[in-house]
Nucleic acid binder design. Structure first.
Lengths: 132, 132
DNA sequence: ACCAGGGCTTTACCATGCAAAGCGTCCTGA
DNA sequence: TCAGGACGCTTTGCATGGTAAAGCCCTGGT
């Protein structure tokens, strides 16, 4: 496709945010992963739930998504015959999360650069235009 | 209905990502806003479309969302009797976008801090657990 | 007069997030 | 010992929201 003229910033005419992983780019899951990355030995379902202020169903669903994506391991067991779930980042999860964060840094940098660049934009502005 | 004792909606706001605006926190719109913030005088529909590699319908829809949220102004007019749409950040849009970026910076900082903190192991958490 | 094509909008579909309801187990008290 | 409630999750149902495809209106060429 045509790479249009301005503000490439990242190479190839594409922006940094193109690299943002959908799975991770979600508030709730971002929180889960941030919590997990700080606890390499894992967190129990409820610890995670409290840390992230999520509802049970919510957390359950997101964990499922993260697990299916190979980002977290989920250990299910029984503690005194009651369900007990331990969640932990996989190595790949750790890698991909850090990668995501790295992209995020670039997004921020892009945005700040863009905001500062303050380009006087294309010609012929609001001639005969009316606000929507 | 009022099933008490599930999910304590309380004490949120622990992490930076809580402050991420949904409207902005979306790849496509993030791109649109990043483009717009670099062009204070506005961009034409097609310029934006090319910059962001979006389809027409896509861009149209996202602009609508952003406009309804008060983040962008959309000027519709005719250039040689053909429709011409100019998009520009509102002052508020500018403010909220920068604020969003600021939150993003904190998210990154949190994540990196978490990754570095690397809390030492409390051993044998997986006693009697089986992988999912 | 016709057709191609530009410049958007609308429609239709499908993925996804989220809260409420559900399920099985344990614990307490009567 | 048998309610009834509290945990610890999972499942269900709904509403939102992103996207590609189709549609609409215009104009300029032939």
């Amino acid at each position: 496709m045509a790479r249009s003229n301005k503000t490439p910033i990242t190479d190839g005419g594409r922006f940094a945010y193109d690299g943002l992983e959908r799975i991770i780019h979600e508030k709730a899951r971002l929180g889960i992963l941030t919590s997990l990355v700080a606890h390499p030995n894992g967190l129990l379902f409820n610890e995670l739930k409290d840390l992230c202020s999520l509802t049970d169903g919510n957390l359950s669903r997101h964990l499922q998504v993260l697990h299916e994506a190979g980002l977290v391991e989920v250990w299910k067991g029984l503690h005194k015959n009651r369900p007990q779930t331990l969640c932990r980042l996989t190595d790949e999860g750790n890698r991909r999360f850090l990668e995501y964060i790295n992209v995020l840094e670039n997004v921020v940098a892009d945005a700040l650069a863009a905001a500062r660049s303050d380009k006087a934009s294309s010609p012929s502005l609001t001639d005969g235009l009316t606000p929507a």
